[in-house]
Nucleic acid binder design. Structure first.
Lengths: 145, 145
DNA sequence: TCCATTACTTATCATATGATAAGTAAAAAC
DNA sequence: GTTTTTACTTATCATATGATAAGTAATGGA
């Protein structure tokens, strides 16, 4: 096993993943929110409830900027802030009902495109894919976590 | 095989890939170029020689903006434009010597981090990974291409 | 030969995003 | 009980990026 060749394959692979992500997600974001705001909403959607600090850390956005974008999102009624009882400095953030609806719609579009992509694959192919995803995630991508 | 579960696994996977890409590439970009410029240089590095139109299409940047960024990159002496003999409207773009040096350094850093990540894996693990990358790329990510 | 298209440029504007400084209020540490 | 740290806010500035309009020059097609 030549590690140099594996590295090249890895680079090509991640490029393909980024491009596929682009294709699967293009145009799912409503006009009136920015890309950054959409990516924050995506994060909230899968991890809610979250604190501002979590968003800041996971999305690599400074606290002031996270605060600003979150203010805009709450102004647009897409998410809501809740006080946390045991620590009044913190805030828990969830999608609002309309935010949830919006993200459900987005995820559904992405899902549809994903299913189109895999529709011609056999059950064995799908098993193989599921196995490959698990292997790579545990041994390469989530390594050192 | 529940496709809905596969989709969720797929989403989690791409998130991990994006995060790993972030970790592997952070701080490799020199101070004096912007993220977009770096990503263009990356593309040129692996695909050179390329035309402006190719960069524009592959990186999803409008022609005027591609032209502008490329002007900045040539001003910084990181890439060079060549006329193509059979069509004088087109231009072929390559990294300059210093651009090549810069990108070599960047790729080398990324490589080092990648090898750190896989250093404790067995030869069998690596074979499995190589196989998983190939499967996913051909059956899922490069599908419809 | 004239017209349409292609490949790219130049100029300009709007805005999203990043960075930094300074502030508040609660909690934790001492 | 005072100080320090944490979690977040507000304000401000710089700039990277995206969008659009208009232009040039070469090519290709009728």
């Amino acid at each position: 096993m030549d590690k140099e060749i594996l590295f090249q394959q890895f680079v090509a692979f991640t490029t393909s993943v980024h491009e596929a992500t682009f294709e699967l997600t293009k145009n799912v974001k409503p006009e009136d929110i920015t890309p950054l705001q959409y990516s924050i909403l995506e994060y909230i959607a899968v991890s809610q409830p979250v604190t501002l600090s979590q968003i800041s850390e996971c999305k690599h956005i400074s606290m002031p900027n996270t605060s600003r974008e979150l203010r805009k999102l709450t102004e647009k009624q897409l998410c809501e802030k809740f006080e946390v009882p045991d620590d009044r400095r913190k805030q828990l953030i969830r999608l609002s009902e309309s935010g949830q609806t919006m993200m459900n719609k987005a995820f559904q579009q992405i899902g549809t495109r994903f299913f189109e992509r895999i529709q011609y694959l056999s059950a064995e192919d799908l098993d193989e894919i599921q196995h490959a995803l698990a292997i790579l995630q545990s041994k390469v991508f989530d390594a050192n976590k």
